[in-house]
């Protein structure tokens, strides 16, 4: 077990280095000069030169990367070229927002997706199955931003039930915070619910056909116990993998949903940073979300161990 963990950590370091180097090079391939993009409407040549000096933009790429990397190891992830804030501060201020949204969305996704998947697998071929499939398909097909705008127009503008968009920290007001998170969590959650539903359904169908389910039934166990204890537990492994990976994806920011509901999370941060050629911020977000992804993968592996005793030996 410890050897396993140690091995994973050892692989994670070069992976992250590679990711950061790739993103760094990709950014330099983007057309457009960050100094020019930042110089504003006036584009004063003296200002452009000052920006290049200040952010080492005149140095060769590998030197720039070196500057950044050296900073990362000393805890200085650089400064946003656009608003002069420290990248670490930006990340820390967005983390709770994105984390909360991801957790809430995941709860919605699990509640809807797993239940619907379970029902449609058990009631395979019936109206229930058909209904759940239709819902899943619409969840995948309806674009998040459209669903978001429709919800805003209906729930906030027409009915006046919830605030249209924005974010309030739970430290300021928990109820206000939840009011603002309901719609975005729902929008994000339904899209993932659809994926979860499809996965739960196929895993459950497979499990229901397995020999141990037949044995369980033959033992005279009630259908409820057969489904929940024997089939579902085994079907959970692929569902958990999917869920953890989806959660990792949510943590790297939900660009469109954040845009529509003006939630200041990672998605908005990185999109604005790319458009403004704000290299340090892009690098910071990528390094951070890359780490999160690796950690989530790792957690998924650990959960395998917990769920499936056969893997423990």
């Amino acid at each position: 077990m410890f050897a396993f963990i140690f091995r994973r950590v050892l692989i994670a370091v070069p992976t992250l280095l590679l990711i950061s180097l790739m993103v760094f090079s990709l950014q330099l391939l983007l057309p457009g000069d960050p100094a020019l993009a930042l110089a504003g409407e006036e584009r004063d040549p003296a200002v452009i030169e000052a920006i290049r000096e200040q952010y080492h933009l005149n140095d060769p790429m590998i030197v720039q990367y070196g500057h950044w990397l050296a900073g990362v190891f000393t805890g200085d992830w650089g400064i946003s070229l656009r608003n002069q804030m420290a990248v670490t501060d930006l990340l820390l201020s967005k983390l709770p927002v994105t984390l909360e949204l991801a957790i809430l969305a995941m709860l919605v996704a699990l509640a809807i997706g797993v239940t619907a998947g379970l029902v449609s697998a058990v009631k395979k071929g019936t109206r229930w199955d058909f209904g759940a499939n239709v819902i899943a398909l619409s969840g995948i097909s309806i674009p998040n931003f459209w669903l978001g705008i429709m919800l805003i127009l209906l729930v906030s503008v027409r009915w006046g039930l919830l605030p249209a968009s924005g974010y309030t920290s739970p430290l300021e007001s928990v109820s206000r915070n939840l009011e603002m998170m309901v719609m975005p969590a729902l929008v994000l959650g339904t899209a993932i619910a659809a994926i979860m539903m499809r996965h739960t359904r196929s895993a459950m169908i497979q499990a229901m056909q397995a020999d141990y389910v037949r044995t369980a039934r033959a033992k005279g166990l009630s259908e409820r116990v057969v489904i929940l204890k024997h089939a579902f537990r085994n079907a959970l492994v692929p569902v958990v993998t999917m869920g953890t990976l989806q959660f990792g994806e949510l943590l790297s920011g939900a660009v469109l949903t954040e845009q529509v509901f003006t939630i200041p999370g990672f998605g908005k941060l990185i999109v604005d940073a790319v458009f403004n050629r704000d290299y340090a911020v892009v690098q910071g977000v990528v390094l951070f979300t890359g780490t999160v992804f690796i950690v989530m993968n790792f957690i998924a592996d650990l959960l395998y161990f917990l769920l499936n005793p056969r893997l423990r030996t």
Partner: peptide
């Protein structure tokens, strides 16, 4: 702009 207007209409 649509979201901005929706926020104005809903009073935020």
């Amino acid at each position: 702009a649509t979201v901005r207007l929706a926020n104005l209409q809903s009073g935020q």
